[in-house]
């Protein structure tokens, strides 16, 4: 079983559209939407939710005003200014980091701790296999923990069901949820666009992947908006040992697919759709190469490849 993570650094470069196309092209896979604070994959992958569970990634203090002596210790020890110096003190969940030291230092035992429900996660079914996705609550934390949990579940499901691939649609940025999406993955596909911002963010993400020793390949979405920049970025990536794959042209069909709630490869045979099919084959090739070197030539990926030739 291999795990492919789709990332970009910069947001809005097409991660989810590409994930949806791959999810459709792979005859058998587990799909994970790791962008838990603005999850979109479920909008373009037809699915049926068959279970949902609350996610608790931390704790929330709760003050009992009948026990509180108004001594002010909690206000003083909170390093996050989450406790307002009122009478009795008020705990603001927006600022609370969940360290619990207000509870530990309260001399009156007036502060209890309860699990903080920070979101909901879903196990859904799709035509090509399970999809795990989540919804982080408003103004909640712990997106990294939620991502790690989703990936762990995906791994368990994958081993039980004999799935050859886990496909992860990642979050933007390079911080906590991105690190949680990356750790221990087999391959990262960087999806970016030929813009100054796209380039800046790609280089930072490439540095992160290099530090975490995860192989990276690159595709440029809407490459024809600035062919010169595309060329520059591909050169820079190549110099960093990144595999350059087929780039995707600007195509209004992309927006149409999203509006229809489908993946591009399902509804279109235009230039972007063609490029995505080519890209998928190339990604499979890279995963297979790794499979051979690390697992001594298991050919599960080969069967995937044959079934999806357009």
């Amino acid at each position: 079983m291999k795990e492919l993570v789709i990332l970009s650094g910069k947001g809005g470069t097409g991660k989810t559209s590409i994930s949806a196309a791959f999810a459709h092209l792979a005859p058998s896979r587990i799909l994970v939407d790791a962008d838990v604070d603005a999850a979109n994959l479920h909008l373009v992958v037809p699915h049926k939710v068959f279970s949902s569970e609350p996610f608790s990634g931390g704790i929330l203090p709760e003050l009992d005003p009948t026990l509180c002596t108004d001594c002010g210790t909690c206000v003083e020890v909170c390093a996050f200014h989450a406790i307002k110096d009122a009478h009795p003190p008020e705990i603001d969940p927006v600022y609370c980091e969940g360290c619990g030291i207000c509870h530990d230092f309260c001399p009156a035992g007036a502060i209890g701790l309860k699990p903080r429900i920070s979101g909901t996660w879903f196990h859904s079914s799709t035509a090509e296999g399970p999809m795990l996705h989540a919804h982080l609550g408003i103004a909640e934390e712990n997106s990294g923990k939620l991502v790690s949990m989703l990936r762990k579940r995906a791994g368990e499901l994958g081993r039980q069901g004999g799935y050859p691939l886990i496909l992860v649609d990642g979050p933007p940025g390079i911080g906590c949820p991105v690190i949680a999406s990356l750790t221990g993955a087999d391959l990262v596909l960087m999806v970016t666009e030929p813009t100054l911002s796209g380039r800046h963010d790609m280089l930072r993400l490439a540095k992160l992947c290099a530090r975490m020793r995860i192989p990276v390949c690159l595709t440029l979405n809407k490459w024809d908006l600035n062919p010169e920049m595309t060329h520059t970025m591909e050169e820079e990536a190549r110099n960093r040992g990144i595999e350059i794959l087929t780039s995707i042209p600007f195509d209004t069909e992309m927006a149409k697919a999203m509006a229809a709630g489908r993946s591009l490869t399902e509804i279109s045979s235009g230039p972007a759709s063609q490029a995505l099919m080519q890209l998928w084959q190339e990604v499979l090739g890279l995963l297979e190469k790794q499979q051979k070197s690390s697992d001594g030539g298991l050919l599960i990926m080969e069967s995937l490849k044959q079934e999806t030739i357009p």
């Binding site: 604070d37 982080l136 103004a139 934390e141 933007p172 949820p177």
Partner: peptide
């Protein structure tokens, strides 16, 4: 602001 709706955006 950063994208998303979790701790960095807040």
């Amino acid at each position: 602001a950063p994208p998303g709706t979790s701790c960095p955006m807040i």
